[in-house]
C-alpha cells in the first residue's frame, strides 16, 4: 500500500495526495475483480430471467400457459382492481390484499419468533470454547440435510391431534382432550420458524463470534446488569447479524408454500401459492409474473431502506 518512489522533489503533502490517489484506484480495481464473478453469474442467470419475467408481465396470457406476444397491462390492472364476475362492477381486489397481508403477517411473526429463539442460541454457541463452536453449528444445520417435505411429515406426527405432544399432555393429566394445532395458522407459524431457524442462527453466530469481550468486561466493571450488557452492548454489536438473519428468514418465508400447505391444510393461499398456480392450472403467466414483480418491488424497497439505515447506524456507532 505504498506509493512508488517519486524522483522529482515535491512537497510531502503532494506525495501523500498522490499515494492516496493510487491507493484508491487500486482499491477500486480490487473491488471490481472481487465483485465480478458474483455479478456476472447472477447477472446472466438471475437478472436475465428477471428481465424475461418483466417482459412476460406486460404480455397477454397464451392459450394453455405461456404468453402471447401482445402488449397488455391487464396483469397489473387485475392485481389492483377486480371486475366482479357476476355484475361487472369494479372494486379493489380484496382477495389479493388479504392473501398478501396474511403472508406478510405470518412471515413477519415467524421472523420475530426465529429471532427470539435464534439469538440466544447463536449467542450460546459463540460463547462455547472455540473448538466446540463448529460442532454446534453443525448440530444446528444437520436436521436440514433431510428433505423439507420429509421433515414436515415428521412434524405432523408430533403436533397432530393424536400426536406425541397431545398424547404426552393427556397422559400427564394436563389436558382432557387434544389441542388442535395442526391445520391452523399456529401450525404454519411453528413450521416457518422451524424451517428457517438456521437462516437466523448462522448469520447471528457469524457476527456474535467476534464479540469484543473487553467491552463487556468494561461494562461489568461499571456495575452494569446482565440485561443492560445485553441491550446496550451485545445487541447493538450484533446488528449486522440481526439484519442479515431477518432478511434470510422474512423473504424466503414470504414465498414459502410447501410448509404452509402441509401444516396449514391448504385451505388458504399464500403469496407463494398464488403465484405458483398462475404458472400451472390457472394458465396466466403474465399475472404470475406481475404479482412476483410487485412482491419483489415491495421487498427490495424495504431492504434498501434497511441497508441504508443499517449502514448509517453502523458508521455512527
Amino acid at each position: 500500500m505504498v506509493a512508488p518512489a517519486d524522483i522529482s522533489p515535491t512537497s510531502d503533502s503532494q506525495k501523500l495526495a498522490r499515494a492516496r490517489q493510487i491507493d484508491a484506484r487500486r482499491k477500486r480495481n480490487t473491488r471490481l475483480y472481487l465483485l465480478l464473478p458474483g455479478l456476472v453469474i447472477i447477472g446472466l442467470f438471475g437478472l436475465m430471467p428477471l428481465s424475461i419475467t418483466l417482459v412476460y408481465s406486460f404480455l397477454k396470457p397464451g392459450s394453455y400457459g405461456g404468453v402471447e406476444w401482445v402488449f397488455s397491462l391487464d396483469a397489473y390492472v387485475q392485481f389492483f382492481v377486480e371486475r366482479d364476475i357476476f355484475d361487472d362492477t369494479l372494486s379493489p381486489n380484496w382477495a389479493y390484499i388479504s392473501i398478501f397481508s396474511r403472508s406478510i403477517g405470518l412471515s413477519f411473526g415467524a421472523t420475530l419468533g426465529a429471532l427470539i429463539l435464534g439469538f440466544p442460541t447463536a449467542y450460546y454457541i459463540a460463547s462455547k470454547p472455540a473448538h466446540q463452536r463448529n460442532f454446534w453449528l453443525f448440530l444446528i444445520t444437520l436436521p436440514f440435510w433431510t428433505n423439507l417435505l420429509i421433515r414436515t411429515y415428521a412434524m405432523l406426527i408430533i403436533i397432530r391431534d393424536q400426536g406425541v405432544i397431545n398424547l404426552a399432555l393427556m397422559n400427564a393429566g394436563i389436558i382432557d382432550k387434544p389441542i388442535s394445532i395442526l391445520y391452523t395458522d399456529t401450525a404454519v407459524f411453528i413450521g416457518l420458524i422451524y424451517s428457517y431457524l438456521p437462516f437466523m442462527v448462522l448469520p447471528l453466530y457469524a457476527s456474535l463470534e467476534k464479540l469484543d469481550l473487553r467491552l463487556i468486561e468494561a461494562a461489568y466493571d461499571l456495575y452494569a446488569s446482565r440485561f443492560k450488557v445485553l441491550t446496550k452492548i451485545i445487541l447493538p454489536l450484533a446488528k449486522p447479524g440481526i439484519v442479515a438473519g431477518c432478511i434470510l428468514v422474512f423473504i424466503p418465508g414470504l414465498g414459502a408454500y410447501i410448509t404452509p400447505e402441509l401444516l396449514g391444510g391448504g385451505k388458504k393461499l399464500m403469496i407463494g401459492n398464488l403465484i405458483a398456480i398462475q404458472f400451472g392450472s390457472s394458465r396466466n403467466w403474465p399475472f404470475g409474473s406481475a404479482a412476483a414483480l410487485i412482491l419483489m418491488a415491495v421487498v427490495m424497497l424495504a431492504l434498501l431502506l434497511y441497508v441504508r439505515h443499517g449502514a448509517k447506524g453502523a458508521r455512527h456507532g
Binding site: 428477471l50 432478511i247 407463494g272 404458472f279 404470475g288 412476483a292 441497508v307
Partner: peptide
C-alpha cells in the same frame, strides 16, 4: 455499491417459481 448489493441479493427477492419458469426459457 447499493446496486451491487441489490444484484447479489436478487435471487432471494423473487419467488422461486418465477425464476424457475424464466430460467427454463433462458
Amino acid at each position: 455499491m447499493y446496486l451491487a448489493y441489490a444484484v447479489i441479493n436478487q435471487p432471494l427477492m423473487i419467488p422461486e417459481i418465477v425464476t424457475a419458469i424464466a430460467s427454463l426459457s433462458l
